[in-house]
Amino acid sequence: MRTPPTASRLDLSRSDRADLLAEARRLLPSPLRRHLLGSSLSLGGLAMLTGCSLSGGASAETLLRAVSRLNDDAQAWLFDPSRLAPVYREADVARPFPYNAYYGVEQIRRVDDRNWRLELGGLIAHKASWTLAGLAALPQDEQITRHICVEGWSAIGRWGGVRFSDFLKRVGADLGARYVGFRCFDDYYTSIDMATALHPQTLLALSFDGQPLPAEFGHPVKLRMPTKLGYKNPKYLAEIFVSNVYPGGYWEDQGYNWFGGS
């Protein structure tokens, strides 16, 4: 009797698996997809679809996320509150500066400056909301620094605005709290450690390259920190809150490191 064509059957099943996988990628909502595919596929993969080592993948992910928490602590320990990120000349500014978000340019949200308010919440004494004009009336600072993206690329930009430490003191924020959280009107959210919030180069940015902050870079107000990676710098700010409860973040909840220092 002829032996069955083992090799070709294997090939077929391999391509079937690839198809199944592509299907799974399309069907799963993105956070779940990343959670599942983040580690199980990585181990060379498709283990998930063989049905036997999903728990193996899940425990690898648990371990990796635990190490990521330790990396938060390591970065907090390394972070020097008075060490400044390098500053550059105006000629070094990247023009055009790259756009990056979790959605494409066509989905950029726009607000009417007259209706926009910055809300304050949590451990803050004076919770009155701020208008753009109110923020613009505060003493302004400027920096030309390198923006480093988690993807690896970097670009030098020029941001102007209010020193965040000045702002936090002015509104009576509890500076001993652990976290400052940000809610954005493009549904993005993130949070940072208080030490970085008080860093002298952490800026409530109202302008980019001498112009009011353009829509693609977070109009009307974003938080700019040259000591953290791009995804930690929230654009389109809607609310700032101070808290001792870990607020997480859009990318952080999916597996990006929370501290995200650069």
Binding site: L37, S39, S42, L64, Y256, N257
Partner: peptide, 28 residues
């Protein structure tokens, strides 16, 4: 995620499944 040398490495050869997964592996 940002192939600055102008070529991509086939993702079948890579670990992590997506950028966030790769970063978790790398920084562990």
């Amino acid at each position: 995620a940002s192939p600055f040398l102008g070529f991509r490495i086939p993702s079948s050869l890579t670990l992590g499944g997506w950028l966030g997964g790769a970063l978790l592996w790398h920084f562990a």
